[in-house]
Design a protein around this nucleic acid. Structure first.
Lengths: 222, 222
DNA sequence: GCTAGCCTGTCATCGAACTGAAAGGTCGCC
DNA sequence: GGCGACCTTTCAGTTCGATGACAGGCTAGC
């Protein structure tokens, strides 16, 4: 297990390195954000522990760089700022978890363990496919920068298809994610209707919804 | 995006449900740990928000149940206990994230968003043979990464042949596996027909269906 | 409070895909 | 050579999905 620590406070950095090595990890440490990016370019770390404030590039920037470049590294952010707005920004930038100083070292280790249990290859906050771009936070989709006018249900379905790309998504999953009440009584063809409407809005989007008979639907590029 | 809220404090529960619904999520709520497990059995939630202390079964128990049973749901734990040892126990039990009361609602939403960005857990093991790869959970087959368009019956037959590889599979077994309903329908040559069609789709797949005269069929590599 | 507009789910219809029966050809074994 | 097992193609019936039309519900704006 390889971990990158990026922290400018020397005392804290040494505590982290020492403690994590004692816990059995291989640890590299840097004290600048731009150095962190350099390291991330060349090694596939399992976890990166980033300080919020750092010389060079701040932790958030490092996190969003890693996200944009599809680095397989889980990111744990450290900060002294406890104000929720900041923390939100950190999480939305692509951090996987968050810890506020001062923190208990045992808890840090526990969170690192929790992170490495998670499957890797996390997707970017914004889903892109073809000429489409779906922002889950804003609940909106753009086609070549132009806003697409999707209904709520359509957006849920499209989001699901994009998240599961290129897998087949079955009707049950679609129904459960896009509607509230239903259990199994899908005696109607609502899904088909919504698919039809969604398809109509996706012409020329670089993306197509394919039917997999008997199984469900999946997205296809081009 | 579907969320389960398990919280016994009625006031907080209603705040959570209302707030999350306003944020665009589909929310179900229960006030007992055992009810939470029942819900998790039946629906594939994207995220479950669990209170630490609850009537019935505590949140940690629910989390570890979900982990043991490979539920695809990410778990966010809520607690009033701030002592790190407790928090560590929560994370190790299988929680994906953690929030201490009282918390800022905006932060809760941010954490939920961070959780849902992660890919879901792994499903059933994938069968590989030759250049073929069959995913039983998704009910799809890929040839060199490209999706093969098999009908339901063809897929069942192929799955059986792959699972039994390299043994011979007799016609009776094939019929029973691919048509759950019938018992003695072997009055026609349906199986032969399906085999023929399946073979046609398996050209150049690194795999061949061999006939064992008088016994059945088996798969052969290369 | 009313109206226009959008969203939703149901239905009917059309078309495409899948299925199984049948017919005729091929092959292996005696 | 004969026979039975197996292979392939064809064809029609059926199932499943796509789509346009419609009515009820909800909302925003007046």
């Amino acid at each position: 297990m390889r971990i990158l620590v990026a922290e400018d406070d020397r005392g804290l950095r040494e505590v982290l390195v020492q403690g994590l090595e004692d816990a059995g990890y291989l640890v590299d440490a840097v004290d600048r954000g731009d150095d962190a990016i350099e390291q991330l370019k060349f090694y596939e770390y399992d976890v990166a522990i980033l300080d919020w404030r750092m010389p060079g590039v701040p932790g958030v920037e490092v996190a969003s760089w890693a996200r944009r470049n599809d680095r397989p590294t889980a990111i744990l952010m450290l900060t002294a700022r406890d104000a929720p707005p900041d923390r939100i920004q950190g999480l939305d930038a692509g951090a996987d978890d968050y810890l506020v100083k001062p923190f208990d070292f045992g808890e840090l280790v526990a969170r690192v363990r929790a992170l490495q249990r998670r499957p890797r290859g996390v997707g970017a906050p914004v889903l892109n496919r073809g000429r489409l771009s779906l922002d889950p936070a804003r609940r909106q989709v753009t086609l070549n920068g132009k806003l697409l006018n999707l209904t709520t249900a359509e957006l849920y379905i499209l989001e699901l298809l994009m998240r599961r790309f290129p897998s087949v998504v079955d009707r049950k999953a679609i129904a459960e994610h896009a509607w509230r009440d239903e259990t199994e009584p899908l005696g109607s063809n609502v899904i088909d209707v919504k698919m039809s409407r969604l398809r109509a809005k996706l012409v020329n989007s670089g993306v197509r919804i394919l039917t997999v008979r008997g199984s469900g639907f999946r997205l296809e590029e081009a």
